[in-house]
Design a protein around this nucleic acid. Structure first.
Lengths: 106, 106
DNA sequence: ACTTTATGTAAGTAGAAACTTACCGTAAGC
DNA sequence: GCTTACGGTAAGTTTCTACTTACATAAAGT
């Protein structure tokens, strides 16, 4: 449903680094921003976009907001990708057979 | 390996439409461009980027070049995505159990 | 050999978007 | 209640990129 937003979201390298940091588990904003080459506000903006794409969730915990990976956006992305998977494998198999008929060139 | 290029590649809506047209099977450039709201050179440029990302292949066929989906880029993308899949499902399951303990709020 | 068809490339432009600093809101601790 | 810590938002700037038109290249047909 929202695979397009998820894609444009994860296209940005910095945003991807933010997202990948959450793979190890939920983290507050400060912990995510620490060590990244951009300012903390930039991280906040990235998290906002990731949230709108359904890729992360957040919950308040005292004075800090803890972000975690949201399966919804990830699932939509995976479903879209699977539409190509079968076709791609079939084409790949066909190519191998064609090469085999030619006597494995290259 | 090249999942980052594949992601930034498929982030563009027009480029995605080009890519999705190849899902039905290999097509020459002209056939791909026909019906799209952009010029044919634009499609050529998109195909170049898609090729560099390992998402499409092309072969000469007379005076026209036939493009098709390349499984390599697609596989790299899927592999990267799978790294998150297990973690996301586990978190989702954990969330459901937490809601269950609380008596299914909302 | 010339023309036509099919496609890639160059140059230039307009719009998006990622970053910065500065500011605002809110929860917690003294 | 005041201060401190944490994080979201606003405004502005700069860089990237997707698009256009114009040109170049190459195979096929006549």
């Amino acid at each position: 449903m929202a695979y397009d937003k998820a894609l444009s979201c994860l296209a940005d390298p910095t945003r991807r680094r933010v997202f990948e940091r959450l793979r190890a588990g939920p983290r507050p904003v400060g912990a995510i921003a620490k060590g990244l080459p951009v300012s903390r506000p930039a991280v906040s903006q990235h998290l906002k976009v990731l949230k709108e794409a359904g890729l992360v969730r957040d919950r308040a915990e005292g004075t800090q907001r803890v972000y975690s990976i949201d399966p919804h956006g990830l699932g939509a992305l995976r479903a879209w990708l699977d539409q190509f998977w079968d076709q791609a494998l079939a084409a790949f198999q066909q190519e191998i057979e064609r090469d085999h008929d030619r006597g494995q060139p290259r």
